[in-house]
């Protein structure tokens, strides 16, 4: 079981690092947003897996039974709202991308900074 737990954590770290890698190595702004989403989702999975109890059931109370083990409801509440807030902030980011495309004609980060720095061309 120890290995299983570590396997879970390692996959979360792997996903987080994949998102981080996309964020710092790709210059396309939409790709960067996708990377941020992957990063964000890895944190979600991490929280939810912290609340899991082996052999537990979803935290919906069962009538008249005392021995049921429920998984921890608190991370569920936090992540439930975080997902909806996440898509809202993604929408704002995409709106910014649309405006950048209209203003600069490109969404590649290096070209945008080149234009901002007034490299003569």
């Amino acid at each position: 079981m120890r290995i299983l737990g570590l396997y879970n954590y390692w996959i979360f770290i792997f996903l987080m690092m994949v998102g981080f890698y996309i964020l710092i190595s790709r210059r396309n702004l939409v790709k960067k947003i996708l990377g941020l989403n992957i990063f964000q989702t890895s944190v979600f999975i991490f929280y939810i897996s912290m609340g899991k109890i082996t052999g537990g059931t979803p935290p919906i109370l069962v009538e008249g039974s005392e021995e049921v083990i429920y998984s921890n409801p608190l991370p569920h509440v936090l992540i439930l709202t975080a997902i909806v807030v996440g898509v809202s902030t993604t929408a704002v980011a995409l709106a910014l991308v649309v405006r950048i495309k209209e203003a600069y004609g490109t969404i590649e980060g290096d070209e945008i900074s080149a234009m901002d720095n007034q490299i003569p061309f």
Partner: peptide
Amino acid sequence: DFGPGGGFQAGV
């Protein structure tokens, strides 16, 4: 109130 669901999911 009785199963999975709620305002966030229903709105989406």
